[in-house]
Deep mutational scan, measured.
Amino acid sequence: DFYKILGVPRSASIKDIKKAYRKLALQLHPDRNPDDPQAQEKFQDLGAAYEVLSDSEKRKQYD
C-alpha cells in the first residue's frame, strides 16, 4: 500500500505526501544505509509510491 509506505493517511494532501517523501528519502537512501542490502529496494518502493500519490490523476486511479 503506497500510503503505508509513505506513512500518510488516505486523506493526506499533496503537501503532506511531499513532506513525508522527503523525510523518508533521506532516511532510506542507499548511500546512507550501505550495510542494508534491501535499502535500494525500499528506496525504489518509496519513489514509486511518491510518483503515484503526488500526481492527482494517478492517485485517483490508485484509489
Rank of each mutant, 00 (worst) to 15 (best):
D36T: 05
L28T: 09
D35Y: 08
R22W: 12
Y50W: 08
Y3P: 05
D55Q: 07
K15C: 15
G47L: 11
H29F: 03
K58E: 05
K42I: 07
S13C: 09
A49M: 02
L24S: 07
K23R: 14
L46M: 08
D1G: 06
G47R: 10
A25M: 06
N33R: 12
K4F: 05
L24E: 08
E51Y: 03
K60H: 15
F2Q: 05
V52I: 14
A12H: 00
Q61R: 13
V52G: 02
S11M: 05
A48H: 13
K60Y: 13
S56H: 10
Y62T: 02
A25Q: 13
I5H: 06
A25R: 10
A25W: 12
L28N: 09
R32S: 11
D35F: 10
A12R: 01
Q38Y: 11
Q44I: 06
D36S: 08
A49S: 03
F43C: 04
S56N: 14
V8Q: 04
L26G: 10
Y50Q: 01
R22Q: 14
R10D: 11
K58A: 09
E41H: 07
P30L: 04
Q44W: 08
S54F: 04
D35L: 09
E41R: 13
N33K: 05
F2V: 01
L6D: 03
Y50H: 07
K19M: 15
Q38V: 09
E57R: 09
R22C: 11
L6E: 02
A48G: 07
P30E: 08
Y50G: 00
A20W: 00
P34H: 11
Y62R: 02
Q61F: 15
Y3L: 00
K23S: 15
A49T: 01
A25L: 11
D1R: 03
S13F: 02
V8S: 01
K15G: 15
D36Y: 06
F2P: 04
V8E: 02
Y50E: 01
K19V: 12
L6S: 02
D16L: 10
P9N: 07
S56L: 15
K60L: 12
G47D: 07
K19W: 07
D45Y: 09
S13Q: 10
I17E: 01
D36Q: 06
Y62H: 06
H29N: 08
A48M: 13
A48P: 03
L46H: 01
G7P: 00
G47K: 12
D45G: 11
L46Q: 01
D31E: 10
D45Q: 14
D1T: 07
D45E: 15
K60R: 14
E41W: 07
I17L: 06
L28I: 04
K18L: 06
L28A: 07
I14R: 14
A48L: 11
H29D: 13
G47I: 13
L28Q: 06
S11A: 08
Y50L: 08
P37T: 11
L6M: 15
Q38R: 14
G47M: 14
I14C: 15
P9H: 05
Q44C: 07
F43L: 08
L26E: 14
P9C: 12
Y3I: 00
R22A: 11
D36E: 06
R59W: 00
S11L: 05
L24K: 14
P37D: 07
I5N: 04
S13R: 07
A25K: 15
K18G: 09
L46T: 02
D55Y: 01
D45A: 10
Q44E: 11
Y21M: 03
L24H: 08
K23N: 08
L28S: 08
A12M: 00
S56D: 09
D35Q: 11
A20S: 12
I14Y: 15
A12V: 02
V52L: 06
Q61A: 14
Y3K: 03
L6A: 02
D55H: 03
P9D: 11
S11R: 08
S54I: 15
R10I: 08
A49K: 01
K58P: 00
F43S: 03
L26P: 13
P9E: 14
F43T: 02
K15T: 13
L46R: 00
K42R: 11
D35E: 11
L53G: 01
L28C: 11
R59G: 00
L24M: 09
E41F: 04
D1E: 12
Y21S: 02
R59C: 00
A48I: 15
S11W: 08
E51W: 05
Y50I: 05
D31R: 09
D1Y: 11
D45T: 14
L53Q: 01
A12Q: 02
D36G: 04
K19S: 15
D36C: 10
D1M: 04
R59D: 00
A25D: 04
K19Q: 08
L53R: 00
D63N: 05
Y21F: 07
I14A: 14
S11Q: 15
P37G: 06
D31A: 12
A39H: 05
P37Q: 10
K42H: 11
L26F: 14
L24A: 10
K42V: 09
E51P: 01
I5R: 06
A39S: 09
Q27A: 14
D1N: 13
A39T: 04
K4C: 08
D36P: 01
E51K: 12
L46G: 01
Q38M: 12
A25H: 07
A25S: 14
L28K: 09
I14S: 14
K58N: 02
L6W: 01
Y62K: 01
D36I: 06
A20K: 09
L24Y: 06
I14D: 13
A48Y: 12
K19Y: 08
P34A: 14
K19I: 04
V8G: 00
K23L: 13
V52P: 02
R32Q: 09
K18H: 12
Q44K: 12
E57Y: 11
K60A: 09
R22L: 13
A20N: 12
F43Q: 04
E51M: 05
R22N: 07
K23Y: 09
N33Y: 04
K19H: 11
K19E: 13
D36A: 05
H29Q: 11
V8R: 00
R32P: 02
